[in-house]
Write a protein that binds this DNA or RNA. Structure first.
Lengths: 161, 161
DNA sequence: TATTGTTATACTCTATAACTATA
DNA sequence: TATAGTTATAGAGTATAACAATA
């Protein structure tokens, strides 16, 4: 498929086996896997009318109800402007509630509704089962190491911003 | 932040420490990291006017010029309908060319233009450097293992479709 | 009949920047 | 002055389904 003798396919060595590019190549594999994993997750959540972003909102609120929109923005890695739309949709669906902060009248505090909590409880098992099917292909020891490395990689992406 | 005694935060044990949920928890960490990585990659590519999807098109064509839109759809994991829009934009930008397949007049064969090849060559180093900053936090041995595991995980997401 | 690509439609998410009301 | 949230705008990507041309 990528015949180096093919004149239509001039050498792009940067994309091929570069001894210094080990790290980059694992990165490419990571992005490819992400694509698949994300689609699998989206599929499992769509059965409950949830997008991955909306699921993230519910999961974040389940762990820390009463956060502000800015705090949520920081967790979701999006701008405060984007959070308005995301919460607008979640609120319209009846999963989330904005409550004015009595101590700071600029701020909203975000809470799950009962419906939101119930939806999360319904959607989570399928999501978790899919994750277990995929990550269950790693042994317990491998999972432990993977967890450590992900924490390290996560720090590396957060740094130097 | 998530005080179990807080009545606003009724127990959602499915989201907490579940001894059987190791795999799922690593999966969640994976999605979080991938989210960050994707944003980092998008940032580095945006400096060249590229989205991650467009970069993916260029990289895929660099490895296999002359593929059809359906073949590209399969690689990008999107529908053929989506590929039309993606290639429309890439073609409008002058990076990619549709050439009718002389042997099957239904099909288009996709090729990089010189501009597309040059853009890829300009954008790749920054992308690769970012990847190396992030994945360089893993040792050579860890990278090798990570590569193996990602291949295994990738297969697990592709299976059972 | 099946396949390749296109069109049409609608929705979610994202980025940017100006705006308001409070602090 | 700075901060929390909103609004406005624009664009990319995605999903779905019906359609034309060709095989």
């Amino acid at each position: 498929m990528s015949d180096p003798a093919d004149p239509r396919n001039p050498s792009l060595p940067i994309l091929d086996e570069d001894p210094r590019g080990r790290a980059a190549r694992v990165g490419v594999a990571m992005l490819r896997f992400q694509n698949r994993l994300e689609r699998r997750a989206a599929e499992s959540l769509a059965a409950h009318g949830l997008t991955l972003a909306q699921f993230d909102v519910l999961a974040n609120l389940a762990h820390g109800e009463g956060i502000t929109q800015q705090e949520l923005a920081a967790r979701l890695l999006v701008t405060k402007g984007n959070v308005v739309g995301i919460i607008d949709r979640a609120e319209a669906a009846g999963w989330v509630e904005r409550r004015p902060d009595p101590e700071d009248r600029r701020a909203n505090r975000l809470y799950l509704t009962d419906a939101g909590r119930q939806l999360l409880a319904r959607a989570f098992p399928g999501h978790s089962a899919m994750m277990q099917r995929v990550f269950g292909t790693l042994t317990a020891g491998e999972l432990a190491l993977m967890g450590e490395w992900l924490a390290r990689l996560d720090r590396a992406t957060a740094e130097g911003r």
